[in-house]
Simulated assay, not measured.
Amino acid sequence: MLQITELSKTLGSFALKGVSLSIADGEYFIILGPTGAGKTILLETIAGIHAPDAGSITMDGHEISRMEPKERGVGMVYQDYMLFPHLTVEENIGFGLKQRSIDPAAIRKQVGEAAEMLGIGHLLERYPGTLSGGEQQRAAIARALVIKPRILLLDEPLSALDVTTRERLRRELVLIHRRTKITIIHITHHFEDLFALAERAAVMQNGTVVQVGTPEEIFKRPHTEFIANFTGMENLIRGISTVHDTEASIDLGRITVTALTDIEGEVVVGIRPEEVIISAGPIASGARNSYRGVITDIRPNGMFSWVTIDIGEPLTGVLTPQSLATMNLAVGENVYATFKASAVHVFAA
Rank of each mutant, 00 (worst) to 15 (best):
D245W: 05
T165H: 02
L7Q: 01
R143S: 03
S241C: 10
G48A: 06
S279M: 13
I141Q: 02
E313C: 11
I31K: 02
A228T: 11
L131K: 08
F195L: 14
R72S: 04
A248M: 10
T45S: 09
G312N: 13
E264M: 08
P52A: 03
R108M: 02
V210R: 04
L324N: 05
R299A: 03
E91H: 07
S101A: 10
Y291R: 09
I283S: 09
L87F: 07
L169I: 13
D25S: 14
H62A: 05
S56I: 07
F84W: 12
I141F: 03
Q322M: 10
H189D: 01
S132M: 14
A105P: 11
T40V: 10
R200K: 15
Q79I: 10
K70G: 02
E68Y: 08
I295E: 06
V318I: 15
V174R: 14
A196T: 08
G253L: 14
G129H: 10
I151N: 00
I278M: 09
K181H: 09
Q136M: 15
T208V: 15
H186E: 04
M117G: 05
V294I: 15
V146Q: 03
T130M: 13
I107N: 00
F339Y: 11
H50K: 09
Y28W: 10
I187L: 11
L2M: 13
E192K: 04
K181Y: 00
T256R: 10
H86C: 07
L153P: 08
N289V: 15
G36H: 13
Y78W: 15
V335Y: 01
R178C: 00
L7G: 01
F29A: 07
H122C: 06
A24T: 12
I283D: 02
S342Q: 13
V210M: 06
T35I: 14
G12A: 09
V257C: 07
L169K: 03
F304A: 07
G270V: 07
D251I: 09
E266I: 06
F191C: 03
G317I: 13
G286L: 14
L169R: 03
D60A: 13
E264S: 12
A330P: 05
Q322D: 07
T320N: 06
V257P: 08
D310R: 09
N334W: 04
I237E: 02
G213M: 14
R138I: 07
R72E: 02
I23W: 00
I271M: 03
L169M: 09
P282S: 08
I41K: 00
D155F: 06
E90N: 12
L329S: 04
T188K: 04
I271V: 15
Y81Q: 05
M1N: 06
Y127F: 15
L315W: 01
G73M: 10
I185M: 05
D155W: 04
D162S: 04
